[in-house]
Design a protein around this nucleic acid. Structure first.
Lengths: 227, 227
DNA sequence: ACCTGAACACCGTTCAAGT
DNA sequence: ACCTGAACACCGTTCAAGT
């Protein structure tokens, strides 16, 4: 039996999908800063110049990868007026989880306005849930903005820690050491609250932030939007 | 009268201050991505290698520049229990203003925990104001985290727009065009809210976000922190 | 239309050599 | 101790040349 002369598995022909998949694969392996045109090209056994047929430039590649990731967000049940708040928290938490699973992807978006197909899809559902809860449309409009900014910023911060390879214990330890050097007379409030400032996991702090915003939404007067 | 052979003004000797000032000067002139070791060195009429005596690396340079910027934040009046809320909003708004004035600096911090001297100074005052307002210590601890993340993320987003040279009108226009392409049947909520989603200035949205969080803070039960 | 090699104009950082 | 030139190991993007 003659051996196949192939030394590599047959590689798929180039396509936008192949480029995005290669990008996501490099993201998993080397983090977001590792997603260079050269590295993605190498993954496809070609040179960086070849990618420019399928993506306009590096930012475009990253943007399309982001939307690919956003497509994995599960919207959950249909909005239910009885359970809207729980559904909302759960959806927003799933968004964060998907971003965290694709570490560093949160550093991609250059604006938080949903325009790519899958961010629009998610925003549509968030709005639907808030409407099911009877929240004023004007408040909804601005809340969506704020909460997406918050979710992305949270994932962004986590991705930095992961990149630097520090775990939560290490972070707490560093903060404690930093705070330990503070002058108790100059910073009495920080000093006396040290144990609280370093408390809680990332998840707990995120969920507290969500509670703040949703609770606020239910008590704040809607913005005065002139149309 | 013999002319001075000097073709340039006497340049100050290198020092950490001189390096940071040069960095801030490059930041003003060319934005945060323009703050390269080479550009900062050129500003000081030297080569990039010379900077490594005063800063550990580029990230360290940026971090120190950030704290230099934070030193410009005016803390305002002493906390007053009658006016704490107004004082708080005003301080948080001034923080954003200082970040916006040094465009792109918001893209520097790799963690939002206040450890550098001037971020500690600002955090101390924020905590003092919340205590003056009688807010529970456990809520304060996590609120500080959330609100600093929000402020920085807001400035970050603005800096992207500035970098791309788009003004607010242009952004609204782009969004409207993007939304115009939406399928009204697939995204009925977004479609019907289009005019609200594109409404309001960055300042208005930021201040709405602050109101959400502060209002939430007054109605939420403090987190259950085990110590 | 798609792919490629080579080049251009950059980066941050290191290091041996100077003062 | 401070400063420097030169080099190393990278970048994103363009472009002429090929198929």
């Amino acid at each position: 039996m003659r051996e196949s002369p192939r030394t590599q598995p047959a590689k798929p022909p180039l396509s936008k999908e192949a480029v995005l998949d290669a990008g996501l694969s490099v993201l998993r392996a080397k983090g977001i800063d590792g997603v260079t045109m050269r590295a993605v090209a190498a993954e496809l056994d070609t040179g960086p110049a070849s990618l420019y047929v399928y993506v306009a430039n590096r930012q475009d590649l990253l943007d399309e990868m982001f939307d690919q990731v956003a497509s994995q967000i599960d919207l959950g049940d249909e909005p239910n007026a009885e359970r809207w708040r729980e559904q909302l928290v759960s959806l927003l938490t799933r968004i964060l989880a998907v971003l965290d699973q694709h570490d560093g992807i949160a550093r991609v978006p250059r604006a938080n306005v949903p325009t790519a197909p899958n961010t629009v899809r998610v925003a549509e559902r968030v709005i639907a849930l808030l409407r099911a809860g009877g929240v004023d449309d004007r408040s909804i409009a601005w809340f969506v903005d704020v909460v997406f900014l918050f979710i992305n910023a949270t994932a962004y911060e986590t991705s930095i820690y992961v990149e630097e390879g520090v775990d939560e214990e290490r972070i707490d330890e560093d903060i404690r050491v930093g705070f330990g050097r503070l002058d108790p007379d100059a910073f009495p409030n920080m000093f006396s609250m040290m144990h609280l400032l370093t408390s809680g996991s990332g998840e707990e702090r995120f969920s507290f932030g969500l509670r703040l915003m949703i609770e606020g939404l239910l008590h704040v007067t809607p913005p005065d939007i002139k149309t």
